[in-house]
Design a protein around this nucleic acid. Sequence first.
DNA 1: GTCTATAGCCAGATAGAC
DNA 2: GTCTATCTGGCTATAGAC
Lengths: 204, 204
Amino acid sequence: MGKKKDKNTEEQILDAAKNVFQSKGMDGSRMQEIADKAGINKAMLHYYYRSKHLLFEAVFKNAFSLLAPQLNTILNDDSSLEDKIKNFTTDYTTFMMKHPYLPNFIIQELNRNEDFILKLKENTGFPTLEKFKEKVANEIKQGKITPIDADQLFVNIIALNIFPFLGKPLIKAFTHKDDKSYKVFVEKRKTEVSNFIINAIKNT
Amino acid sequence: MGKKKDKNTEEQILDAAKNVFQSKGMDGSRMQEIADKAGINKAMLHYYYRSKHLLFEAVFKNAFSLLAPQLNTILNDDSSLEDKIKNFTTDYTTFMMKHPYLPNFIIQELNRNEDFILKLKENTGFPTLEKFKEKVANEIKQGKITPIDADQLFVNIIALNIFPFLGKPLIKAFTHKDDKSYKVFVEKRKTEVSNFIINAIKNT
DNA sequence: GTCTATAGCCAGATAGAC
DNA sequence: GTCTATCTGGCTATAGAC
């Protein structure tokens, strides 16, 4: 199960579009290539999704809805901050290794069209920092961690976790790694990064 | 001095191309728009740069050569690791606030065309991690910092500094900031980030 | 629902006058 | 060096047969 032939046309199109859009972006993608990958012709793309723009939006929303739940570990889980950081770093990196194009796709298209995010914010299920901020405030009050602005901490956490997937070509070049050793490098970050963050906010 | 009218045509073109390519990328940019911004016509673009591709390459190399020296503070400066981190974080953030499109442009186009970096590596002046690695090894040996892989530390440092410029729309949405408060937020990172990193590698 | 054929447009590139 | 005009190809989108 799970082979392309088992899916209906609409799903085949969305799969193919995901593939092409996520690696080449909106402007760099061609409807012809999507049609070829889906094993149908261009006319069908328009029959199901009316326009390139609408097909792109479907792919984008789909991608974002895949990404957003990953933040739950850090934002809404009830465990201690230290556990949240450990779990998030491991889970998120594992997930991204399976979807390496995703971060760049989202970041890229949001930078190109900032209005996209407004549409996303209207949706229920858009991640919120409320609980995370409370948790940080509590652990600071209890003396468990050093005083830090919760927004800054949040950005640091996602920066350290996402950047290796955004800057892969750059980092590979600087550190002289090939794809194989880069994979090992990222794998190690599952523990490296959480240790790094926990050290940084540890009360001394 | 410095006004567009004082520059020769070739420079005007490069300036205009920089503008358009850096905000819209290779695929999203139009030669017509570049010509308009440069105050000339399309034919001139081809007269000076032969093709869109070559014009783009000129802009890209130019952008990268602007970015690379910024890494010298962290890679080749002779001061202590702590000072390097402090200075780099401040300098880099200051520089990027003046060129906010740069990081996304570089990252984006490198992801779309990984061969670009091979061409860049051939150039003299491509940043090298040698001295930084020695410095890290020394300070570990002297017990000044906790043991850490130099590559991982390097990635952490640039991740924390670059990500706010890559993920601006996303972060703005999560933290409910407008452009003005986002600028304040990034300004604060000049000290926040270096403290964070120094805490993380402090020997305890 | 699925196809072929084509309309209609737009972009990069070039020819050729000045 | 700089311009106008135009070629040429490729792309999104649609018409219309089956």
